[in-house]
Design a protein around this nucleic acid. Structure first.
Lengths: 365, 365
DNA sequence: GTTAGCACTCTCACCTCAAGAGTGCTAACA
DNA sequence: TGTTAGCACTCTTGAGGTGAGAGTGCTAAC
């Protein structure tokens, strides 16, 4: 038989909420189970330890707290944290001082766009003391901006600059030695004809290119036909590369401060963390999460067992997407033990995702 | 009084060397101090434990082995490992099977050059069970290949593709709104005039550009002068960006498998490793090492205390530089506990650095 | 020069035990 | 009726003690 709540007002009385909050905030800093005496001593509750004990028992019955063993204090459950995040956490706007600190850090690398993602991870890590995560903004459908081909005997190396997303560099094996002048002609032609086209649009044209190289009346071994065949092959490769970059759910996960999490007492020497790290390297997971996350701005918190992969059951994620849906989107966030300063983490993540929004606006304006 | 060596032949007899080798190879796999009995049992030495004990005592007197405590077996000292690496390690060419495995892994991403560095780190990690390290090839003096400018109201974003090294992306704040057509004119002109020039050569031309925008007889607020000023500013920025990329000692350190090292019993839950990791993030260290390392091909081994930074005294590095001196060079290697399978690590590092050489040859051919 | 034998040393795992922390319950109190 | 003091109880934690085991160094015999 569950003990009746001592509170008369609703499912969780104000006093119980205050005590839950005190337990969580105390546990977040102390990392040790918190007992009734410590609570009374440190948080002016105006109650005796015995009374607090009663409330703690209620909160435990409600599934918000738990007990490592009989004679230990209480620690929050994942549900307890969830309640805290939903109802008790302080305003999640970051204090102005910290906003300034972050803006300052970003100011240091003001114009080096390719470092922003890394910096986002680093900043989140240093501000929250947990691990910081960031993905580069993933474009919805990249369009070709510019193509460069460089001859290397039987190889051509290409650089493909899309209008959105990250630059691709690669090599193409040729069936015959090709000189730079021919390659430059090919690149010029394709730049002129394919500029601003998406992978799909380029794919649609590839058959025409192949047809050109095989059209009747052309000497199939002659220079014209061979160059036309080259054009077709390069176009095909561009399309494929763009397509891959569209498909690649997330190009890369930048992370920093994993060591911060390693140091948390709950993970000391445990190998739980190993699994977390390897799960993280699987970018598909973050990509999935990104898919489930609603429009940019909103902050999503995944606490402990709320994460579907078993490896992630011991950590919490505070994530926000950024970018423009339909153009390019990415994720920034924080990974830490479930014993996390959620309020501060949410504030920081929210602020950094705002900064990343500004960046994306600039990049794809 | 040091005990006289039992061997008559030279400073370290053949038998002592064989036993040292057995101790090291046993310790590398067992990670526990190895005693005389285990040695006799597992390595057909044709000697009794008592005799082996005598030799072990000699080796300890010579500073090649040590004793955690009286009743424990022997473990190699850093000097012991050094001797092993210099004199006892097997041929460092990698077995054909493993060569094939690595080639296969690289084949999977055959043409995505920007992934090679990461892949090198990953491969080294998985093949050696230690942490894999790789730096991108650092160009000696990058030359401009291509510049792209895109208008964004008061900002221009630029993409700078050097003939060597990595692509740079950034932004330039303008003093007035500039349209895309003007920016394209500027980019075309600079592409024509500055192609294949190094930072130094471009810097030399910048004053001329500025002079042009301020030349007498030109309306200083007119469109011509303003465009000339823009050309000058962009040229200056290109020079600076190229210069920075030349100066940046190492663009980035790719690493993988740090968790492998974390798992090594000698680092279980210790915070030594934390310091190692943070030292690694400081790219200057690897850059310094790169400076001290002789031409590509040769494999350099830094064992324990041979590393100058105190944090690195508990780990060993097996490194090789790759690339073409004067063109572009980088480092690949392995980091692990001093208790490392040096022979195998050296073989793997040597082979991977060879692969990276091939890559650089292709990229900068 | 090599080996068997043996005393010796040190670690490690295990046990016990007392101290301490914190609980839940009950009875008294406002 | 809610709050509090008191108290017995439980469980962890660290200190101290102990015996088994591993491995050495020495010595005397081969």
């Amino acid at each position: 038989m569950a003990r009746r709540s001592r509170s008369a007002s609703g499912p969780l009385g104000a006093r119980a909420q205050a005590i839950l909050r005190a337990v969580i905030e105390e546990y977040v800093v102390s990392a040790t189970p918190v007992g009734s005496a410590a609570l009374v001593e440190r948080y002016r509750l105006g109650l005796s330890p015995a009374t607090v004990r009663g409330v703690l028992a209620d909160l435990e019955a409600a599934g918000l707290l738990t007990h490592p063993h009989t004679s230990a204090g209480r620690i929050p459950t994942d549900r307890g944290y969830r309640f805290y995040v939903e109802s008790l956490a302080d305003s999640t706007t970051l204090p102005a001082v910290e906003q300034l600190m972050i803006r300052h850090q970003f100011g240091q690398v003001q114009f080096a766009t390719d470092h922003w993602f890394r910096l986002a991870a680093t900043t989140l890590a240093s501000m929250t003391g947990s691990a910081g995560l960031a993905t580069a903004a993933k474009p919805a459908a990249a369009r070709l901006r510019w193509l460069d081909l460089v001859a290397q005997n039987h190889l051509a190396s290409f650089i493909l600059v899309p209008r959105e997303g990250t630059i691709k560099q690669g090599q193409l094996s040729l069936h015959r030695p090709v000189g730079q002048s021919e390659l430059s002609r090919v690149a010029n032609r394709l730049n002129a004809e394919l500029a601003d086209l998406t992978a799909a649009a380029i794919e649609a044209r590839v058959p025409a290119y192949f047809a050109e190289s095989a059209r009747p009346g052309l000497d199939h071994d002659g220079p014209q036909a061979r160059e036309a065949a080259l054009v077709a092959r390069v176009a095909e490769r561009i399309a494929r590369t763009l397509r891959e970059s569209d498909a690649a759910s997330i190009e890369e996960v930048y992370s920093d401060g994993l060591l911060n999490v390693m140091e948390a007492p709950e993970f000391a020497q445990s190998e739980k963390l190993r699994r977390v790290f390897s799960a993280l390297e699987n970018r598909a997971y973050l990509a999935d999460l990104l898919g489930t996350m609603s429009g940019s701005g909103r902050i999503h918190v995944f606490i402990g067992h709320e994460n579907s992969p078993a490896e992630m059951r011991d950590v919490s994620l505070v994530l926000a997407s950024y970018g423009r849906p339909g153009r390019a989107v990415g994720v920034v966030g924080v990974l830490g033990p479930t014993r996390m300063a959620y309020s501060h983490a949410m504030g920081t993540v929210g602020f950094v995702s705002g900064l990343m929004n500004e960046l994306v606006d600039h990049m794809y304006s």
